[in-house]
Each structure stands twice: as structure tokens, then as C-alpha cells.
Design a protein around this nucleic acid. Structure first.
Length: 401
DNA sequence: TCTGGGGTCCTAGGACCC
DNA sequence: TCTGGGGTCCTAGGACCC
């Protein structure tokens, strides 16, 4: 049966949300109307563009590029710091509103939702529902959304990406050729800049070129990935809107250090701090991890990682940190480090292997300690308590200032 | 003042087993 | 003793997304 799928996408989410939040707090300047960008702290080496206003875009400023470059392109561009607390808040409010329309709804990212309206139309047309959502969001929150309407998720997502902002587009089967095939292949979901040169070599410039190729030629050139993008180009996608909160496959935290670290003890301190964050989030979800993974990025942006499977899945900060510390020692070659990260994998809801009696005692003690710390964090905020040895990342040695 | 942080999925190659 | 081959598990690295 033909499905009715909606993809709701917040226009310029971080910038719009920052703008709306400022206006709500009495500011009169709407940063959507000036050359503006949202970015991180350059002094902390987190200076990348996370969002740009339409005018900033006209200057050629791109998401993900250094703020330094953005200023070169447009010296008068104004930068505003990101505030994820505000973003999550608006994201939740939007989600609540969309839940009024269907139970089959999937949060695809902080600013995107898929809605399966197939059994929730109640005699209305998908387009009319989209119109109502679009209008209500605008009036209630002050930001706008694009909505794509199609018979599957891929086409709905492609549709919401057409003309912006504040627009509703359909992309039904009979519109694929006229609306999607004419687009450059780089516009297709999952086609990134690494596969572009390879596609170009195959004389594939548009999504239509890709769609008209033989499927087997793409599989030959790209393997499984080739099959996926060939199907996408042809508008084929049978995936379901996932409306039950799915368990994550991995959880991790990483930090770009305020300056390059060449000292393993300093790296260990940061590692402890991010391990605490990760294990806290793991316990929040009531999950256990079987694999610990440590990543490093050098000052030259070379990334390396080291991981090991544990005998028993755990969520203990101590156990995971001890393992992470060993992995770091084995991985670290003494070169200046820009970023350190930890990730836990192989997540389950149980300690998969029974603990031996020998382990149980000390484990219980650690579990209690973790539980106490978590409770305090829940009550007074995440940063109120840290184990001894946590580094203050604001602290930069004088010589490097 | 040059380059974030959180994820998912895939692949290649090695170890190990039968 | 001149050397198979299938299957599974594990690790490292990479592409892609927002």
C-alpha cells in the first residue's frame, strides 16, 4: 500500500532558534536578517561555523568551515555562540506538537522528524496536514519548517530539501524525474564528497544519471554502498518510520583540547573526565558496554583509535576508565594531541557474563559510588561533582596564551 | 585564532577453529 | 610438510549524516 510520509525539517535550526530565543529575551535585532553565524569558542579551538544566515550564505560561508575563513569571506559577519540547551528545548517542543498528528513518528536528528501519516489521515490530504503543521509551528514558536511529502522516507527527505525556507514540497513517484533527477548527484542523501570524484569518472553528474546506470555497475564500483545510492536515485526506500525509541549502538564523548597535549598524565586526566560523562549517560539508559574504544587526533589531524572487548559488560566508571587508560597507554606515541575521545560499544541491557564471586564485592562498592555521584549530578547539575584528578580545560599555560 | 561533537554503518585483514 | 577453504570474531579505519 502506498504510504504517506512527512519529513519535517527546521529551517536553519541553530540560527533560527538562537534568533527566536534572543527575541524572546528582549533583544530587538533578528539575527536571521543580518550576516550572522553560529559558532563555538575560537580560543578553545572550537571555531567552526555551525549555522549561517541567508545573507552570510550569500558571501559563500559554509557550515563546518573555520570561523576564521568565514570572516575572510565576510568581515562584517556577526558571530553568536551556540547554546544547545536552548536547541534541545525547542526540539522537544516541536516534537510534542508533531506527536499530536501521529503515533508513528521518528526523531531523526535534533531538527528533523519523519512522520508516517498513512493511518492517521482521517480523511484529510497529507498536503493539508502539512500546511496546518507549517502554520502552527510558525505561529506558536516563531521559527519555520520545510515539509516534504512522499511515499517513503528517502523521497520525503529529499523533498523537504528543495526550495527553502518555509515551504512544503511533494515528491511522488511520478515527480521523481522532473524534480529529483535534474539535481546534481551531490544533492542525493548519502552521496558525500569522497564518492563524488568516483561518480564523476563514471560520467554521473546528476541524480538521473545515477538512476539510469546499471545497478550491477554501481555494486561493482562501490559494493553495498553502490546498491544503496542506486536505489535512492531511483526513489526506492522501504525503511520504516521507527517510532519506538531505539537503543543506541554506541555512546561516546570527545574533546578538542585548548592546546596540544604531549603529556600522558594530562591526557589521562581528560580521559577520566570524558569517561565519567560517557558512563553517566550509559547508566542513565540502564545499559552496559562490552567494548571500550579510545581515539586520538594529532595536531596534524591524523586520527587513530584502539579498542578492546571486555570479559564482562559493565557500566562502572572505574572499570571502563581502567581499560581506557591502558588503551591510551598502548595507543599514545608521544606526538602532540589535539583531540581525545572515548566511546563504548557493544551495548546491552544486562551484564552479559555472570561476575565471579571474587569480583562481586568490589563491584558492589563501585556501583554504589557511581549511583551516589549520578544522583548528585541529577539533582545539582552535571558539573557539580567530579572525581579527583579532573582537569580544568579552561586552564591554559601562560606560555601558550 | 585553521579545521566541533555525536552518531551509524561498512570493509579489510588477521586470528582462530574445524 | 611446500601448504585448502569456509566460517566467525575481532580490530582499525573510513565514509556519511546532522
Amino acid at each position: 500500500m502506498e504510504r504517506a510520509i512527512l519529513h519535517v525539517d527546521v529551517n536553519n535550526a541553530f540560527l533560527s532558534w538562537t534568533a527566536v530565543d534572543r527575541l524572546k529575551h528582549g533583544e530587538t535585532l533578528d539575527i536571521r536578517t543580518i550576516p550572522a553565524i553560529i559558532g563555538g569558542d575560537e580560543k578553545q579551538r572550537k571555531g567552526v561555523v555551525l549555522a549561517k544566515s541567508p545573507i552570510a550564505k550569500q558571501f559563500g560561508i559554509q557550515t563546518g568551515e573555520p570561523i576564521y575563513f568565514a570572516r575572510k569571506k565576510c568581515p562584517k559577519v556577526q558571530m553568536f555562540r551556540s547554546n544547545f540547551k536552548v536547541y534541545y528545548d525547542y526540539s522537544n517542543q516541536l516534537y510534542q506538537l508533531l506527536c499530536e498528528y501521529t503515533d508513528k513518528i521518528e526523531r531523526f536528528s535534533i531538527d528533523e522528524c519523519f512522520m508516517d501519516m498513512t493511518n492517521y489521515l482521517r480523511g484529510r490530504k497529507p498536503y493539508d496536514i502539512a500546511l496546518e503543521i507549517n502554520k502552527r509551528v510558525k505561529e506558536k514558536f516563531g521559527f519555520t519548517v520545510n515539509i516534504g511529502i512522499a511515499s517513503n522516507k528517502l523521497l520525503a527527505k529529499m523533498a523537504s530539501d528543495f526550495e527553502k525556507p518555509d515551504k512544503i514540497h511533494t515528491l511522488y513517484e511520478n515527480e521523481i524525474e522532473s524534480k529529483m533527477w535534474v539535481l546534481p548527484v551531490s544533492e542525493l542523501f548519502m552521496v558525500g564528497k569522497k564518492s563524488l570524484p568516483k561518480l564523476e569518472k563514471m560520467r554521473i553528474k546528476t541524480i538521473g544519471d545515477l538512476a539510469k546506470k546499471e545497478e550491477k555497475d554501481l555494486i561493482k564500483a562501490f559494493g553495498k554502498y553502490g546498491k544503496t545510492i542506486w536505489e535512492y536515485a531511483n526513489g526506492i526506500d522501504n525503511s520504516e518510520v521507527i517510532y519506538e525509541q531505539e537503543d543506541p549502538k554506541c555512546i561516546g564523548n570527545s574533546v578538542t583540547l585548548p592546546y596540544d597535549f604531549s603529556d600522558i598524565e594530562k591526557l589521562q586526566e581528560v580521559l577520566l573526565s570524558i569517561t565519567e560523562q560517557t558512563t553517566y549517560r550509559l547508566r542513565k539508559r540502564g545499559m552496559y558496554a562490552a567494548v571500550v574504544n579510545v581515539q586520538l587526533k594529532t595536531n596534524e589531524f591524523k586520527v587513530s583509535s584502539h579498542q578492546r572487548k571486555l570479559l564482562t559488560a559493565t557500566n562502572s566508571t572505574k572499570v571502563i576508565y581502567e581499560e581506557a587508560k591502558k588503551l591510551l597507554q598502548e595507543l599514545y606515541k608521544g606526538i602532540p594531541i589535539r583531540l581525545i575521545g572515548i566511546r563504548v560499544d557493544g551495548l546491552t541491557h544486562k551484564e552479559e557474563v555472570q561476575l565471579s564471586m571474587f569480583d562481586t564485592k568490589s563491584n558492589e562498592k563501585q556501583e554504589k559510588l557511581d549511583a551516589v555521584i549520578d544522583k548528585i549530578k541529577d539533582k545539582y547539575g552535571y558539573n557539580t561533582i567530579t572525581r579527583a584528578g579532573k582537569i580544568d580545560l579552561e586552564e591554559v599555560p601562560d606560555k601558550l596564551k
